[in-house]
Amino acid sequence: MNEYDMQDDATRRKVFWLLQRLTSLSLWKAKHSAFKVFAAAYETAVRTWPRTDPEPPSADHLKTVHEILSLYDEGLNELARGHRFVWREGQALNRAIDRFNYLAKYFYTNSKHWERGGQIEPYPPKVDALARLMHASQVQKEYVPLEIWGTYYNFAYLQLPNGLLDRDAYNHTFYKLAFPNFPEVLPEVLPEVPNPSGPVIQSGQTVPCDGIWEPVTIEQSRVLNVIPLGAKLFGNNGCFNYFVADTAAPNLEGFDSATFSSTIVPTHWRLLWEDTRYANGIIPDESQYFLDPPEPTELANREAGELVRTGDICPVSGEWNTEEYGGKTVQVGRRRAHAGPVGQGQAIRHE
Rank of each mutant, 00 (worst) to 15 (best):
M1D: 12
N2W: 15
D8K: 15
T11K: 00
R12M: 07
R13A: 05
V15Q: 02
L19D: 00
Q20C: 07
L25S: 03
H32V: 03
S33W: 10
F35R: 05
A39K: 08
T48D: 13
A59Y: 12
A59W: 14
R81I: 07
V86M: 06
Q91P: 06
L93E: 11
R99F: 09
N101T: 12
L103E: 05
L103S: 03
A104W: 05
T109S: 08
N110C: 15
Q119M: 11
E121Q: 15
P125A: 06
K126Q: 08
K126E: 06
V127Y: 01
V127H: 03
R132K: 13
L133V: 10
H135D: 02
V139N: 00
P145C: 02
L146Y: 02
E147C: 03
Y152V: 05
Y153W: 13
Y153E: 15
L158K: 02
N162A: 13
G163H: 07
L164R: 00
R167L: 14
Y170A: 01
E184L: 01
E192M: 06
V193R: 05
G204I: 09
G211S: 03
I218F: 04
E219W: 08
E219Q: 04
Q220E: 11
P228W: 10
L229T: 13
G235R: 03
N236D: 01
F243L: 12
V244D: 08
A248T: 14
A249V: 09
L252W: 10
F255P: 10
A258C: 10
S261P: 04
T263K: 06
T267Q: 02
L271S: 02
E274G: 07
T276K: 12
Y278T: 06
G281T: 08
I282T: 09
Q288A: 08
Y289D: 06
P293L: 02
P293D: 02
P293M: 04
P294G: 02
L299V: 00
L299N: 05
A300L: 09
N301C: 14
T310L: 02
E319M: 12
E323P: 09
V330A: 08
A337W: 09
G340Y: 15
G345I: 08
H350T: 14
